[in-house]
Design a protein around this nucleic acid. Structure first.
Lengths: 259, 259
DNA sequence: CTGAAAGCGCTTACAG
DNA sequence: CTGAAAGCGCTTACAG
């Protein structure tokens, strides 16, 4: 069912039907009612491509993800919430998978040229995020999920990583602990830096010296965290009731390949 | 950069440039070269909406997911692989989030009418999958990730759930175990039924009676599995070294809300 | 081998 | 308040 057919069915012009459907003020209320009813009854839905071509808006927002690496529980939970919210506006999420940083940058250039999406959401920003600079240059709207320190202003949303880790560390200090480890994210990610700042602040506020052996930086997986924790505990062997075996991991997995 | 500009730049018609870019056989090889080079140099990329409108293909395949529920590690791993493969063909994944089964069906109808996607991938099929019937009726191509028992033939891909669980169960029987529990997926999902069949087959092959108390059906989360396992173990209390505490779960979480 | 023109299905000035 | 027509940026018969 195309607009043209719907218009013929109603004995109206495409113009009027289009306006009635899109809520333009100048159309007669009775006409609008009739159009709305008939459209609903006939199950009319505008062709997405035609609409996009005519309006210049794609009705989709994009995300580019790094293959399997980035599909952790965090990203997917974020995607779920984002999808639910965007569904209300009938905007879609279009995502592209890449396998390298170069590919990611290329994906943004491609998307800009082909006008597939109206905007992007970037996750896991680095302190000096090159992607943000690129999108700014390309004139593509975007919002950062996290923060970056590039000179130009960017839209972002983030939690208070520094405050959260500072309070968590302080809480453990309050309980009397003195050797507190930080299993942190990858070095260079903004959130990792922010968490480190919170951790160090809490320690120094109590005059506890920082022990580099108690801080690990890596990606967030059960296996890696397990290995890091185990290494740290071995530094000071003693019986522990801490449940290290998790998800079937009973011994440290082999080291990841290096390139 | 539009096709028209590129054509003017080259002193050719849009027609020829379009054909050169799309690999039509009738264009002169020298012309093709020149077009390809210039297009690359100028960073020309066809407008996605225009291309879709003209060809009738959307260049995207769709998935509809149930909000936060379905964003488990399994789905996301699947999405990652799918995205990587589709990226090679320059086809995008467009996903929509819904919060009920009714909404899911509505989403397919909408997608069919607006022609947003060329095909769908359905996951977690039920034994008698209504969605598959709907898509068949709508004439929308799709492939099932899993199987269903509806009468009409459908394209699907799946693993051998029955064989896998049968072998796993047999392995435990070989080790001398006799009280073997099955923490299974939701009742009614095809894969759950298939796994149950494998489990029962392995037990009966050794003449072990089936104990309903040792089979649980629910969604796959650490918390639920922990609770199910704990309940089963309490049936036969005895000291165990089995590491039940996982991911910080130390006591069973509250029961999920019922409607 | 190349091009002029119609068409894909919408929106939106412009005119009435 | 309504409509005829141009335009969005491509593809593709049709003609040469």
């Amino acid at each position: 069912m195309r607009l043209k057919e719907l218009a013929e069915h109603l004995g109206l012009s495409q113009t009027t039907v289009s306006r009635a459907l899109n809520g333009y003020p100048e159309v007669n209320e009775a006409t609008r009612q009739r159009v709305a009813e008939t459209a609903a009854r006939l199950g009319y839905r505008p062709n997405a491509s035609a609409l996009r071509l005519a309006t210049g808006r794609s009705g989709a927002i994009g995300m580019v993800l790094h293959g399997a690496n980035e599909f952790g529980p965090h990203t997917t939970e974020f995607l779920g919430g984002m999808g639910a919210r965007l569904a209300l506006e009938e905007v879609d999420i279009l995502f592209t998978t890449v396998s390298s940083y170069q590919e990611e940058l290329a994906a943004y250039r491609r998307a800009a040229a082909s006008q597939k999406v109206d905007a992007f959401v970037l996750s896991s920003p680095t302190l000096s995020d090159e992607r943000a600079d690129l999108l700014l240059d390309l004139g593509l709207p975007f919002v950062l999920h996290g923060r970056t320190n590039i000179a130009r202003p960017v839209a972002w949303l983030d939690i208070d990583n520094t405050g959260a880790v500072e309070r968590a560390t302080t809480h453990l200090l309050d309980l009397g602990h003195r050797r507190i480890a930080l299993l942190n994210g990858i070095k260079g990610r903004t959130f990792s830096e922010h968490r480190e700042i919170g951790y160090l602040a809490a320690l120094s506020a109590r005059g506890i010296p920082f022990d580099p052996a108690l801080m690990g930086n890596s990606i967030f997986t059960d296996e890696i965290a397990f290995r890091m924790a185990q290494t740290m505990l071995e530094l000071r062997p003693r019986p522990t009731a801490f449940p290290l075996a998790c998800r079937g991991v009973r011994s440290p997995p082999p080291a990841p390949p290096r390139r």
